[in-house]
Amino acid sequence: MKTIRYAFWAIVALCLILIGLANRDPVTVRAMPVWLSDLLGLSPDVTLPLFVVIFIGVGAGLAIGFLWEWLREYRIRADGRAKSREVAALRQELQQMRIASVGAKSEDDVLALLEKTR
């Protein structure tokens, strides 16, 4: 199983390296259209290799997706915590009932033995 995992990650690494080598050309990433930057007098743009832009986009998409799922599953986690607390309380109650029944049973057994000897 470990070999398959290592082979998978090696293939993923090879694909990422190939994507990086094929997309080395610099591109300019602009935060706003040219006409708006000319109007405002500021030009927030950066020049990066294309593969960096691709990897940042994929990473941002994954981060947004994970955050969205984490927020969406809040109710499920809250229900799980409530059920866990309920199970813990029921186990505690069952343990107390077992202790009480063992104590009562031993007293009844002793009383039963004493009554038989009379």
Results as ranks from 00 to 15, higher is better:
Pro49Asn: 01
Leu113Val: 08
Lys83Ser: 08
Ser37Gly: 02
Asp38Asn: 12
Ala31Leu: 01
Gly103Glu: 15
Arg118Lys: 14
Glu115Met: 14
Ile4Met: 14
Lys105Trp: 10
Ser43Glu: 11
Thr117Tyr: 14
Ile56Arg: 15
Arg30Gln: 02
Asn23Phe: 02
Arg30Cys: 02
Arg81Asn: 09
Ala60Pro: 04
Leu71Thr: 05
Asp79Ala: 12
Ala31Trp: 00
Gly80Lys: 15
Met32His: 01
Asp45Val: 06
Pro33Phe: 02
Leu21Val: 04
Val27Tyr: 00
Ile76Tyr: 12
Gly59Lys: 04
Ile99Trp: 13
Leu18Gly: 03
Val29Ser: 00
Val52Trp: 06
Val27Gln: 01
Gly59Thr: 04
Trp35Thr: 07
Val102Arg: 15
Gly41Met: 00
Ala78Glu: 14
Leu71Ser: 04
Leu39Ile: 05
Asp79Gly: 05
Asp25Glu: 15
Phe55His: 03
Leu50Asn: 09
Leu39Gln: 11
Leu21Ala: 04
Lys83Ile: 07
Arg81Tyr: 09
Leu113Arg: 15
Ala100Phe: 09
Thr47Ala: 05
Gly61Leu: 00
Ala78Pro: 04
Arg118Phe: 07
Leu114Val: 07
Ser101Asn: 12
Asp109Pro: 03
Val46Glu: 01
Leu42Asn: 13
Ala82Leu: 13
Asp109Lys: 15
Trp35Phe: 10
Glu115Cys: 07
Leu113Gln: 14
Asp79Pro: 04
Ala100Met: 08
Val87Ile: 12
Ala89Cys: 05
Ile76Asp: 13
Thr47Pro: 01
Lys105Asp: 10
Met32Lys: 00
Ile19Met: 02
Ser37Thr: 00
Ala100Lys: 15
Tyr6Trp: 12
Gln95Asn: 10
Pro33Arg: 02
Arg98Pro: 03
Phe55Cys: 02
Ala13Val: 06
Leu18Gln: 13
Ala88Gly: 02
Lys83Trp: 09
Ala31Val: 00
Leu14Glu: 12
Ile11Asn: 10
Cys15Gly: 08
Phe55Thr: 00
Ile17Gln: 14
Phe8Asp: 08
Ala104Arg: 06
Val27Ala: 03
Gln92Tyr: 09
Trp70Cys: 06
Thr117Phe: 13
Ala100Ser: 10
Ala63Asp: 08
Val87Glu: 11
Asp38Gln: 05
Arg75Pro: 03
Val110Cys: 11
Tyr6Gln: 15
Arg118Ser: 08
Arg5Gln: 12
Gln96Leu: 10
Glu86Pro: 03
Pro49Arg: 01
Arg77Met: 02
Leu48Ile: 00
Pro26Phe: 14
Arg5Met: 12
Arg98Ser: 07
Pro33Thr: 05
Ala63Cys: 07
Leu114Phe: 09
Thr47Cys: 03
Trp70Arg: 15
Val12Asn: 09
Ile4Val: 10
Gly57Tyr: 04
Ala10His: 13
Leu16Asp: 06
Ile76Leu: 15
Trp9Glu: 10
Leu16Thr: 06
Gly57Met: 04
Val110Ala: 14
Pro33Tyr: 03
Met1Asp: 07
Trp70Thr: 08
Met1Thr: 07
Leu18Val: 06
Ala100Thr: 06
Ala100Trp: 09
Val87Cys: 09
